[in-house]
């Protein structure tokens, strides 16, 4: 279930600023941003192109460093982390989901899913078992040894989600996760994300599509590197069958379509 009420800040940004370029050509991507995200929140970040959504996601994912301001992840300052420690945090605490899936085409599906575990140093058999179990929950067990070019967009994104989850991260960062998918596949992916959220994971999703925000319990609108609006949906009752306005697919429908998308 969503743990909005747990009130444990997993992310705290204080006057976070990111500038690109030098001198006259300086662009302000993030402008003195203050933001607190609690553990278990599903946050949708919206806004026009160039408003700083992806820059924010990159900073949260420790792929980039801020020009000014402070970023506390699980209460610890990210500023003090070495490059090696940042990689370790990305490996253990953060799961990335990209618009273009970003699977490695040279590797088969199960190898793609095991990749974060490889960098963790887990033994081959153990990581294959773990990845296989995870792929089973996504209905992709029979396609474990397929190559990425043999699968549909929806399936590839589910593999990417499995890869993001394989290390049991505390935060999932999704950058336009349905951007390359048709409506039906988008619904399935969002349903998956919603389920992950229900299990207590924090999800931060960047999207252009207002329809997808209905899956989130908090929507942040950004304009010119600042937060323009920050609104929250009322907290859901502790009922697994509670439906979002656009969530017209039933759980059983999702299960049957998984293998075919």
């Amino acid at each position: 279930m969503a743990k909005e009420g747990s009130q444990e800040p997993v992310i705290q940004l204080q006057r976070l600023t990111k500038l690109f370029g030098h001198g006259d050509a300086t662009t302000v991507a993030l402008d003195n941003l203050d933001l607190v995200i609690q553990k278990g929140e599903f946050v949708a970040i919206m806004g026009p192109s160039g408003c700083g959504k992806t820059t924010l996601l990159n900073l949260l994912g420790l792929l980039d460093t801020p020009t000014h301001g402070e970023y506390l992840l699980d209460g610890k300052s990210a500023e003090d982390l070495s490059e090696r420690q940042r990689a370790k945090v990305r490996r253990n605490q953060i799961g990335f989901i990209f618009q273009s899936f970003n699977l490695l085409n040279r590797m088969n599906i199960i190898e793609n899913v095991t990749l974060p575990l490889t960098y963790k140093g887990m033994r081959r058999m153990k990581r294959l078992t773990k990845a296989s179990e995870l792929l089973k929950t996504f209905g992709l067990q029979e396609r474990e040894y397929y190559m990425p070019n043999q699968m549909s967009g929806g399936q590839l994104q589910r593999v990417a989600i499995a890869r993001a989850l394989v290390n049991n991260p505390s935060i999932i960062l999704a950058d336009e996760p349905t951007g390359n998918l048709d409506t039906k596949s988008s619904e399935i992916i969002m349903k998956e994300l919603s389920e992950i959220h229900q299990q207590g994971n924090t999800i931060i999703m960047v999207t252009h599509n207002p329809d997808l925000t209905v899956w989130a319990d908090r929507i942040i609108h950004m304009v010119d590197g600042r937060i323009d609006r920050d609104s929250k949906y009322p907290q859901l009752p502790e009922d697994e069958n509670a439906k979002r306005p656009l969530n017209h697919y039933s759980r059983s429908t999702v299960r049957t379509t998984k293998g075919n998308s």
Partner: peptide, 14 residues
């Protein structure tokens, strides 16, 4: 590929 590997936790050393 290098970008993807780094995003999912590869260190510079890896």
């Amino acid at each position: 590929e290098i970008g993807i590997r780094k995003a999912i936790g590869a260190t510079n050393g890896s």
